[in-house]
Nucleic acid binder design. Structure first.
Length: 301
DNA sequence: ACAACGCCCTGAGGGC
DNA sequence: TGCCCTCAGGGCGTTG
C-alpha cells in the first residue's frame, strides 16, 4: 500500500529516467485509471503526447510530472519553457510506475503506457485500479501544484510544513488521532501502515480524541511520524504482496522493520505484550494494548 | 463548515 | 476440485 515513502521512492526513481524526455506515444489499455480525466482517454493522450517531462514532484501520496506542451517548446529544450500542466499520478492501493525498454514483456495489469523518445516506456501497472492518472493544469504560485492536488495538505517532509500549524488544527478537531492522521486535508502522506507505526512509537492510542490534545503530545507524535517516514524512505518503502515495487520492479525493505502493523498476536517489540488487531473505520488497526492506552491520566500524556 | 460513511475494484485465501 | 464469500484500503462523493 503506497504511502509517502513509497511514492517518494518512485519519484526518485523517475528523476533520472524521465526528466527531460519527450513522450512520443500514449496507449490506454484500460480507461479506469483515467476516470478523473475530463475528456477521457482521448484528451489525456492528446495532452500528454509530444510533451517534454520535467522534474517529478510530490505532495503526500500524489506524484506529478510537469509537462511542457510541444507547442511551447523552444527547439526541444525542456528547461527553458515553463510547464503549464502535469501528469498527475496517484498509486491508490496497488498502482506501480515502471520504466522499462519498449521490448520488455507487458505485465498483465498494465493499464496505461507512455512511450519515450529514448526507447523506454513508462508503464502504469495497477491490479485493483484504485489508482488515478490525469493531465491537469498547474496553478501558478509558490507551490505550483496541479489543480487536483491543491486541496491536499502539506506533508511532514515538505520544507514549508509547520508542526505548530497542524497541532493547532488538530486540537480543534472533533475526531480521534488515527482518523485525523489519515485525513489528507489535515496532513498528507500518512496511510494506515505509518499511522499505526507512528502512534505505536509515540505510545498513543489511535482512538484518543484530538480535541484539546496537549501541544507537547502533538509535537511528540509528529516527531515520530517524521522519523518513521524518513526511515522508510531510506529503506526504499514498505512492500506487501509484491504490490508495491519501485520503478525497476524491486520491492522495498521496510516491512521487516514494522513494529506493530500486520503483527497481530506477535510480541510488542517494546514490552512483549501480544499486538492486538481491531477494526476501526473499516480498516485494521494494530496496537499494543499495554503501551498504547486510552486512559486519561498517563505520564506520557 | 466539519465529520463520517459507503463505494469503487480485483485477486488471494479460507471454508466447505 | 471448485465455488463462493470475505478481506484488503485511499480518495472522494454523499449524507448527516
Amino acid at each position: 500500500m503506497p504511502e509517502l515513502p513509497e511514492v517518494e521512492s518512485v519519484r526518485r526513481g523517475l528523476l533520472d529516467l524521465t526528466a527531460g524526455r519527450q513522450v512520443t506515444d500514449v496507449t490506454v489499455l484500460h480507461p479506469r485509471l483515467l476516470r478523473d480525466q475530463p475528456g477521457g482517454p482521448p484528451e489525456f493522450a492528446d495532452r500528454l503526447r509530444g510533451g517534454l517531462l520535467g522534474t517529478p514532484r510530490r505532495r503526500g501520496k500524489f506524484l506529478w510530472l510537469p509537462v511542457v506542451d510541444r507547442t511551447d517548446q523552444r527547439l526541444g529544450v525542456a528547461q527553458e519553457a515553463d510547464p503549464s500542466q502535469a501528469l498527475v499520478v496517484h498509486l491508490g492501493m496497488s498502482g506501480q510506475v515502471r520504466v522499462v525498454v519498449a521490448a520488455a514483456p507487458m505485465h498483465p495489469h498494465t493499464r496505461v503506457v507512455a512511450a519515450l523518445d529514448d526507447g523506454y516506456e513508462i508503464r502504469f501497472v495497477d491490479q485493483r485500479m484504485f489508482g488515478r492518472l490525469r493531465m491537469d493544469e498547474l496553478v501558478p504560485g509558490a507551490d505550483e501544484l496541479p489543480r487536483s492536488v491543491s486541496h491536499i495538505a502539506r506533508d511532514p517532509l515538505d520544507p514549508r510544513f509547520h508542526a505548530r500549524v497542524l497541532v493547532d488544527r488538530l486540537r480543534l478537531r472533533r475526531t480521534v488521532l488515527k482518523r485525523a492522521l489519515l485525513d489528507q486535508t489535515l496532513v498528507s502522506g500518512i496511510g494506515n501502515i505509518y499511522a499505526d507505526e507512528s502512534l505505536w512509537r509515540a505510545r498513543l492510542h489511535g482512538e484518543r480524541p484530538t480535541f484539546g490534545l496537549p501541544v507537547r503530545t502533538g509535537n511528540r507524535l509528529l516527531a515520530h511520524i517524521h522519523d518513521v517516514l524518513n526511515e522508510a524512505i531510506s529503506a526504499g518503502g514498505t512492500s506487501f504482496d509484491a504490490l508495491y515495487v519501485n520503478v525497476n520492479g524491486e520491492s522495498g525493505w521496510y516491512e521487516r522493520d514494522l513494529a506493530v502493523y500486520g503483527r497481530e498476536g506477535l510480541a510488542c517489540r517494546r514490552c512483549g505484550t501480544p499486538v492486538r488487531r481491531s477494526v476501526f473505520t473499516n480498516r485494521s488497526s494494530f496496537t499494543c494494548p499495554s503501551c498504547q492506552r486510552l486512559s486519561v491520566n498517563r505520564l506520557t500524556a
